[in-house]
Structures are given as structure tokens and as C-alpha cells.
Amino acid sequence: MVQIKGLKKSYKNFKVLDGLDMSIGKGDVYGFLGKNGCGKSTTMNIICDIIPKDEGEIILGENGEQIKIGYLPETPALFGYMNGYEYLEYIAACAGYKGDVKKRIYEVLEVTGMVEGGRRRINGYSRGMNQRMGIAATIFNNPDLIILDEPTSALDPQGRAEVMAIINNLTNTGATILLCTHILSDVERVANRIGILKNGKMAVEDNIIDIKSRFIHNSIEIGLKSPDEKTITLLQNADFITNFRFFPQSGLAVLDVENADEGMLKAMSILAENGISPTKLQATSPTLEQIYIQTVSDGGMEGGRF
């Protein structure tokens, strides 16, 4: 659906994008991540032809067909003097919508939970309502590609949950979505692919499952039923661990090791030798947050060991 090759963009002397390569397939829910100011919004604006690129190739659609794009900018500015219905009527007119406009307005308002809110003037909306109306306008014309720039930013937890529920519903319809957000749990919930932008280039881009499996597991979690000082000391002083953390309230011991498989065997051996029956024993995979922080931090590794 979207192929970007060698995209470059500078603002005066500041290079924001320095040869970005990106690939979004049809039906993908692509989580676009990166530090503040790294170029995510710039990339989205370039895809939507809002700002010009300096260099690079952008291919939209497969087999050269034209595609419709719906773009929700961060904190969308709507027409406050209109109510939701009027605003969507205007959007329908902009899009040249050929079908039953009233029916489609009702559909998108229902999807976004704004059937009642749509009767009020937009300048009276809360942030969450504003965001939902923005999504309604973005998806009105059934776009082939939906681009959402920080759709849950500045929302309270309830507002965030409502917006994420809408996005979740959209993903179930098979829409292709490019989602930019800092809330990694949201990305993990809805996205199947992620791309992490660093220094103007794509540092990591793949399916979430493949990325996680590529980042080597090196933590073992051991749940202790009745943790005593002897057990803790035993584990803490084990020669195969690089770091030891113990959480007294949950009785959880986390052992960082060089190699998870080897570490597991040694941990099991120690526990068996000392007659300790753990409530939990598992190698943990890194969270998206850990992968993200490792990737974007200075000196962080990219796409490899973690």
C-alpha cells in the first residue's frame, strides 16, 4: 500500500529524514514509533502531500492504482461553528461522496460513538469528542489508507480507551492504518507491524512477533511461594546471572542472564537441588517498551541483541 524509499527532508539546516525506507502492506496496522521530533509527523505530512519532500520515492497503492487517504493530524482543528452532522456533510461534499450521505454520516457517528454528540456545536466538544469527530471525518470516505497521528494524545484514560476501541474496530474491518503514538501498549494492542524511526532512518521495521523473537530473551522470572533469605541469597549469588532483582510484595525474582535457555536449565537445577518449588518459572520476552527504549537510546542496538 505504501512504499517509501530513501526519503529525505530537512528544515533549513536540520536534517529530519535522512533516507527513510518504509513499507506498509495492505491491511497492515502499522505502529510508527520514535522519539519526539524524530520525523514521524513529517513523514505523515509528506505522505499526505501537506509538505514537500526533498528527495526520495513514495509509491502509494499497489499496481499503480489511485488510493484514498484519510489523515487525522495531532489535535485536529475542526470547524467549531458547525455541529458534527454539518461538519461531516461538508466533508462529504469535499470528498464528492456519491452514496447516501445521511446514511454514511450516521454510520461513522455510530462507529465513533458520536450520534448524540454530533448534534452539538463542535466548539463545545471535549478533547475526546473532538478526536472522535476527527476520526469520523477521516474515515468518512472509506479511505484505503488511514493515517492517525497521536490519536490519543492529551486524552484522559477514558477518552483514550474510547478512541482505542474505535481504532480496534477499524482494524477488524481490514483497513490499512498507519498509527503514530507514544503509548506503546496501544500499539501492542492493535498493530501487527511496527517501525521505529531513529536519526532520520528506520532503525527497526518488521512484524511485532518477529521483532520480539529477534531480540534475544535474557530474563528468567521465578515465582517464590515462601521466599526466605537463604533462597534469595542462593539465587542472587548464582554464577550464571548478570543481574538479580527481587520484588518482595509479589515474591517474584527476576534473573538477567546471558543466555535464556542455558539460564533456565541452571535455575531449574539450583531450585531442584535445594528443594525449592517455584510458583512460576519462565523466560520472558522483551516488551515493546524495552525494545523501543533500547532502539532509540544513544548507543542502542538496532534489530538485534537486547
Partner: peptide, 11 residues
């Protein structure tokens, strides 16, 4: 008006 894409995209 800007056209960044090689293909003609309807926005």
C-alpha cells in the same frame, strides 16, 4: 499543491 508520490494519489 504538492504531489510527493510517483503515483497519482487521490487525497
Amino acid at each position: 499543491q504538492i504531489d510527493n508520490s510517483g503515483n497519482e494519489a487521490i487525497l
